[in-house]
Design a protein around this nucleic acid. Structure first.
Length: 861
RNA sequence: GGGGACGUGGCGGAACGGUAUACGCAGCAGACUUAAAAUCUGCGGACUUCACGGUCGUGUGGGUUCGAGUCCCACCGUCCCCACCA
């Protein structure tokens, strides 16, 4: 019997699919339903890694399955091709970012094609193609005209390594998401997309995304951070108030119910009042500098001391002007949230309490916990934030917290000193990047007309090729001629914007462009209506509040600009886990004391451990971690494919763990997947050798295959790839046993295999084609429909029911499937083991619970 | 500090509230082979029993239920997200 040779068969079938153009998207809409499968498109680093294999294998299984199920499938691929690494390569090696990027795309495309993915490559594009970014510029210009794009000076996150601004979402724990450098605050004039205009829509839209993980929806909701409260003004009472503050200070609070507990006001170090006072107060000025220096990393907050300065000013309490509150500047008040000022209620807010204890400010309890004694209740070092009734608060006394909030808000509103307000944590999306390798912002700055969007007939604004990277900073800014142009409106000499767009802009609408990559407008509305929304989007959870939030925003913005009809781009989202591997450290350490990590290729088995290949030195096995160059625990997809075939690799990354969890790559595991491939071939080859027909029927095998078809489809609908593969293994065990027990039942096994092969085709498509041909089928399995099943054959004739007494299994009985409760009850009563157990323990039957076809429980006492 | 997820054999994991540990990996024993590889067969929760069997077992402690890995409460542990957000 011949072994299956993946190395020979796999390229042959890839060529056959290409020759037949099997994955070309249906050009025109049919009466078949549509299905849009998309995996997050890759950054063209130059090499694919196992994470790509897993991501694209999942998408490919879904795409091939839906195709077999009769859907018109759109399954495209492209490249998220702008970004810093191309410029870094230019600076390090003198290669042009464009040449570097396109060369990487070429080699990555070659590698990706080895995976045998059912992708329509005719729709491929890169975001650095002028045909793509030019259309992005058209959208941006239109958004500018609609007022969705604004330019303003703002305090921004500055990455000193990449020398560019970062959006809030791109700062992770105080560091740049790509460079890892500690981010600085800078005042710069920047372009912003007004994502905050969509804060409510983006939160409310989440409730329609019922095929998204709850976790991602929650993360987005928290990121947008909607809170309802009161914005109100405290009027000046005493002190030398600087000019410009006749009304006093406006604060934001979510606890207007605790207004009578106020003991101070605090403004941020960047607050206009603090700045005005500091202008004439050197001591305060020094304090502001120190307060701004405090970081926002975890350690800073943990150890961060509450610091403040009394301004000497006081304000009047709105409900009782006799009460005067001092105004402080405090380091823990943030300028860019709410109004940059708060009233402090130490008894019911931990930060305010810490501050009050430090500076000896009054602590006045106004919320009485249930069943607490008002005469005794005192807050010491822990603020009380739980439920209760208001006391010591005049007209609010006796109210529950929510009622008191409502009452306080309406009184303040009636007094004209404020109003109920909703504030958000979300900030506008700063999209200016001071970099070369990105989409030029299509704006011209004119001395008389101001910023003017470039008209559509002058797009794209092309990136110049002749740029230099010999100095840090933005090459566009120092290009001798590029930025000099004329104003599109008045024709006078003018300058181009030299900032480029955040690359997250590029990935915020590419899924729309895939529906018609050659469209003249950014999006072909008809094509988008046919294909959108993406039915199944698959990618890493690390984009939960980056890409996925931006893409939702841009799609909604395009909708409101009349460009598309969809509002939510991704109807179904799946966040897959990473590929991990054990780590191996050499016995001796590096000079700096760090571990010298060894790659899996550098070690060999030794005793019951590992030794370094060549030296034989003992190897320490470290933790299981995400594959990374720094830990050397990377296996290259090309090597795996060369050794085991791509089908085994695809199968393994899907089989060994649930798809949302990390999967640990092991050599023995992928060998197991290789065995699966061989075992399928063994069964196919055996029936083919025997002539594919003849012999007795095999009802047991037939039932098993109908059950399998049902379960495999249901499992795939739920993306339970690992569970489905386990069923295939179990079925192979049955098939092998039947072949040994009833070798003559060739026709029955051939029939079973005719159903099995299309089931495995989404996972191991090359093997499936080879087997399909060997089974005598004319066409390719890629064009074969998903098998159907007879529901009557998915149930057994006989049911084996465990019999429990008081919840403990004592024996089992066999009854006809679907037998009535009465029949089951009598059979259980008649069971000898049960009778013996009851009588020897002096138990009498009280009740019998029958779960049809499942279990019987005799309740006895 | 706030929010969320998850704890099941040696390992990855499976299990509509209904026989816990399917399937895979590793391991042990055996068959085939001169031998090895490959392949195939069998055995693998703990304690106890010659055996049939019995008792205990899904992080810990309670609860709901005829019945709990699954639902509820508390705790312990691990991981993820957010974070002086008023």
């Amino acid at each position: 019997m011949a072994r299956y040779d993946p190395k020979a068969a796999e390229p042959r079938w890839r060529d056959a699919w290409t020759a037949a153009d099997s994955f070309r998207t249906a050009e025109t809409a049919s009466d078949r339903p549509k299905y849009y499968v998309l995996e997050m498109f890759p950054y063209p680093s130059g090499r694919i890694h196992m994470g790509h294999v897993r991501n694209y294998a999942m998408g490919d299984v879904v795409a091939r399955y839906k195709r077999a199920r009769g859907f018109d499938v759109l399954h495209p691929m492209g490249w998220d091709a702008f970004g810093m690494p191309a410029e870094n390569a230019a600076m390090a090696r003198g290669v042009h970012p464009k040449a570097w990027t396109y060369a990487n795309i070429d080699s990555m495309r070659t590698q990706l094609k080895l995976l045998g993915l059912s992708i329509d490559w005719s729709r491929e594009f890169a975001t650095c193609d002028p045909e793509y970014y030019g259309r992005q510029q058209a959208w941006f210009a239109q958004a500018f005209r609609k007022g969705l794009v604004v330019r303003r000076e703002a305090s921004v996150n500055w990455d000193p390594v990449d020398m560019t601004v970062l959006a809030n979402e791109q700062v992770i724990d105080g560091k740049g998401w790509r460079s890892g450098a500690v981010v600085e605050k800078k005042k710069l004039t920047q372009w912003f997309l007004k994502i905050t205009d969509y804060a409510d829509a983006l939160i409310d839209g989440l409730s329609t995304l019922d095929r998204w993980p709850d976790k991602v929806r929650l993360m987005q909701e928290n990121w947008i951070g909607r809170s309802k409260g009161l914005k109100m003004t405290f009027r000046p009472a005493q002190g030398a108030w600087p000019k410009g503050f006749p009304e006093g200070v406006e604060v934001y609070t979510t606890r207007p119910d605790t207004l009578f507990g106020a003991s101070f006001l605090a403004v941020a170090a960047d607050h206009p009042l603090a700045l005005a006072l500091a202008a004439k107060d050197a001591d305060l000025s020094a304090f502001l500098v120190a307060a701004r220096a405090g970081g926002t990393s975890e350690a800073d907050i943990e150890s961060g001391e509450k610091l403040g300065r009394d301004t000497g000013l006081t304000v009047a309490h709105p409900f009782d002007p006799a009460i005067r509150l001092p105004v402080w500047v405090a380091n823990f008040v943030l300028m860019d949230y709410g109004t940059g000022a708060i009233f402090g209620c130490p008894a019911h807010d931990q930060r305010d309490l810490d501050f009050a204890r430090k500076y000896d400010l009054p602590v006045r309890e106004v919320v009485l916990p249930p069943s607490a004694d008002p005469a005794v209740f005192h807050v010491e070092q822990e603020a009380y934030t739980g439920p209760g009734r208001i006391f010591r608060s005049q007209f609010l006394d006796g109210m529950e917290i929510e009622a008191a909030k409502a009452e306080a808000v309406s009184r303040i509103e009636a007094m004209g000193q404020g109003e109920g307000a909703t504030v958000y944590r979300l900030r506008d999306w700063g999209v200016s990047r001071q970099r070369y390798w990105g989409c030029p912002i299509p704006i011209v700055h004119c001395a008389t007309c101001g910023p003017v969007p470039v008209p559509d007939d002058q797009l794209p604004v092309l990136l110049p090729d002749d740029v230099t990277f010999d100095r840090p900073g933005n090459p566009l800014l120092r290009h001798p001629t590029w930025r000099h142009t004329t104003c599109p409106t008045c024709g006078a000499a003018a300058e181009r914007e030299t900032d480029t767009l955040d690359t997250f802009m590029d990935s915020s609408w590419y899924f729309l462009r895939f529906t018609d990559p050659d469209a003249i407008p950014p999006v072909n509305r008809e094509a988008a209506n046919r294909w959108m929304a993406v039915d199944q989007y698959i990618g890493g959870v690390e984009h939960a509040v980056l890409h996925l939030l931006y893409a939702r925003f841009v799609t909604r913005a395009m909708h409101d600009m009349g460009m598309v009809d969809v509002q939510e781009p991704f109807a179904g989202l799946f966040t897959q886990g990473m590929v991990t591997h054990e780590t191996y450290a050499a016995q001796e350490r590096l000079a700096n004391g760090g571990d010298r990590w060894l790659s899996p290729a550098e070690i060999e088995p030794s005793g019951n451990g590992w030794a370094e290949r060549g030296t034989g030195m003992h190897v320490r096995v470290g933790g299981v971690e995400k594959m990374s160059k720094s830990k050397a625990n990377v296996v290259a997809p090309e090597d795996i494919i060369a050794r085991h075939g791509v089908d085994a690799a695809r199968l393994f990354v899907l089989s060994d763990s649930p798809p949302e969890r990390d999967v640990q790559w092991t050599e023995s595991g992928v060998e197991g997947s290789g065995r699966f491939v061989q075992r399928v071939w063994t069964e196919v080859d055996a029936v083919a050798e025997a002539g594919l027909t003849g012999g007795p029927p095999d009802p047991e095998l037939e039932r098993a295959v109908h059950k399998l078809v049902k379960a495999a489809g249901e499992g795939l609908d739920g993306l339970k790839f690992n569970a489905v593969i386990a069923l295939y293994y179990a079925f192979l065990n049955i098939l092998r046993r039947q072949r040994e027990d009833k070798p003559e039942a060739v026709g029955a096994r051939a029939a079973a295999l005719q159903k099995l092969i299309p089931l495995i085709a989404p996972y191991t498509p090359h093997l499936a084609e080879e087997a399909w041909a060997r089974l005598g089928n004319a066409g390719m399995v890629v064009d074969a429909p998903w098998p159907d099943y007879d529901p009557a054959l998915t149930i057994d004739e006989e049911a084996i029911l465990p019999v429990q007494v008081n919840g403990k299994r004592r024996d089992e009985i066999r009854v006809a499937f679907g037998a009535s409760e009465e029949v089951v009850r009598e059979a259980a009563r008649a069971n000898a083991v049960v009778q013996a157990y009851l009588s020897s323990n002096n138990l009498v039957e009280r009740k019998i619970i029958v779960v049809p076809n499942r279990i019987v429980n005799i309740v006895a006492a």
